[in-house]
C-alpha cells in the first residue's frame, strides 16, 4: 500500500517537470481504453464520411473516369460548371429556391407546431405528435401525392375541379413546369417534420416551469412574449440542432423530386444540384466533374449552417 502511495507521489512531482507533449502522451497512455472504445466507429467514420469529403475536393481538380488514373486539371471543372453548363446554372437556381423555401419554412413550421403541441395535455400531445411526424418516417408513401394530383379525372384534385366546373380537362400537375416546383415543395414540406421537429418538441418540455412563473411576475403578458423572452433563449441548443437538421434535410429531397416528376424532370424545371451530381456521377461516370459538384454542395451546406448560427445567436436579445 505504502509502495503504491509513494509511486503516486512520484508521478505527481513528475507532472510539473514534463513538457506539454510528454504530458499529453502520458494522459493518452493512461486513458488508452478510451481510444480502443472509439476506434471501431471512428475508423469506419473516417473511411465513409471524412475521407470522402477530402477526396471529393481532391478529385474536383481532376478529370477522372475510373478507368484511367485521374488527370490534374486545376480549376477546369469549376470553370466548366459556371461558364459552360447551362443546366448546372439552372440546377443552382432550383436548389436555392427549393432549399431556400423548404429549409426555413420547415424549420419555422416545426417550431410553431412544437410550440402549439406543447400546450396540449400529454395524451393529446402524443397523438398529435404522431400525426405530424408520421409522414417523415413512412418511406415512399409520398407517392400517394401522385394519385391525389394525378393528371386524369380520377385524381382527387382534378376530379374535384372538374366536378365543380372550374376546369374542363384535367390539369397535368406533374408534367407542367409551372405546377411542378410548388407541388414538390409542398410534398417536401409534408415529409419534413422529422428529427428537428422531435428535438424542438423535447426542447419545449425541458424548459423549467418556474421560469414562466418568474417571467409572469416580471410582467410578461402573453404567450408571444413568453416564447421570445423565456422559452427560446433557454432552448437555444435545441434550436441550433433543429436548424442543422433542417438544412441537411432541405438539401436532401432529391429522391422525392425524382419520384414525383421523374428524372430528368420536364424541361429540367425541378433539376437540382443533387440531380446534376447523380447524372454525372452515377450515369456518365465523370467523377472529377461530379466531385466538383459535390464539393460545391458541401460548401453550400456548411455556409448555410454558418449563416443560421449567426442568426440564432440573436434570439431573445
Amino acid at each position: 500500500m505504502a509502495k503504491i502511495k509513494s509511486a503516486e507521489a512520484k508521478t505527481q512531482v513528475d507532472i510539473h517537470k514534463m513538457s506539454k507533449a510528454a504530458y499529453t502522451w502520458r494522459e493518452m497512455k493512461k486513458y488508452k481504453t478510451g481510444y480502443i472504445l472509439l476506434a471501431p466507429f471512428y475508423i469506419l467514420f473516417t473511411i465513409f464520411v471524412i475521407l470522402p469529403v477530402l477526396l471529393s475536393v481532391f478529385f474536383s481538380f481532376t478529370i477522372f473516369n475510373m478507368l484511367e488514373p485521374p488527370e490534374f486539371v486545376f480549376m477546369q471543372n469549376y470553370v466548366r460548371l459556371f461558364l459552360d453548363d447551362d443546366i448546372f446554372l439552372l440546377a443552382i437556381k432550383n436548389t436555392l429556391i427549393f432549399a431556400g423555401i423548404t429549409g426555413p419554412v420547415s424549420y419555422l413550421l416545426s417550431l410553431l407546431f412544437a410550440w402549439f403541441i406543447n400546450e396540449l395535455s400529454p395524451r393529446v400531445r402524443k397523438f398529435v405528435t404522431l400525426v405530424f411526424y408520421a409522414p417523415s418516417i413512412s418511406g415512399n408513401v409520398y407517392i400517394i401525392w401522385t394519385i391525389l394530383f394525378s393528371g386524369d379525372q380520377y385524381g382527387l384534385v382534378n376530379g374535384f375541379l372538374i366536378d365543380i366546373g372550374l376546369v374542363n380537362s384535367p390539369i397535368q400537375f406533374f408534367t407542367n413546369p409551372s405546377y411542378i416546383m410548388p407541388l414538390v415543395i409542398v410534398v417536401a414540406l409534408w415529409t419534413s417534420l422529422g428529427t428537428s421537429f422531435l428535438s424542438l418538441i423535447a426542447g419545449f418540455q425541458v424548459v423549467d416551469r418556474t421560469l414562466y412563473e418568474a417571467a409572469a411576475i416580471d410582467g410578461v403578458k402573453n404567450r408571444w412574449q413568453e416564447l421570445w423572452s423565456v422559452t427560446l433563449p433557454t432552448m437555444r441548443p435545441q434550436l441550433m440542432f433543429a436548424a442543422v437538421m433542417s438544412i441537411t434535410g432541405a438539401f436532401g429531397f432529391g429522391a422525392i423530386i425524382t419520384a414525383l416528376c421523374g428524372f430528368p424532370s420536364p424541361e429540367y424545371c425541378a433539376h437540382t444540384i443533387m440531380h446534376h451530381l447523380q447524372d454525372y456521377g452515377n450515369t456518365r461516370f465523370e467523377m472529377g466533374y461530379a466531385s466538383a459538384i459535390a464539393t460545391l454542395l458541401f460548401f453550400m451546406q456548411i455556409g448555410a449552417n454558418a449563416l443560421i448560427r449567426n442568426l440564432l445567436s440573436k434570439v431573445g436579445k
Partner: peptide
C-alpha cells in the same frame, strides 16, 4: 460538423471506395 451536410456530398467518392 459531419451532421451539417448530407450523404449526397459523399456519394461520389463512396462509390469509388
Amino acid at each position: 460538423y459531419s451532421l451539417m451536410f448530407n450523404s449526397t456530398v459523399t456519394s461520389i467518392t463512396n462509390f469509388l471506395t
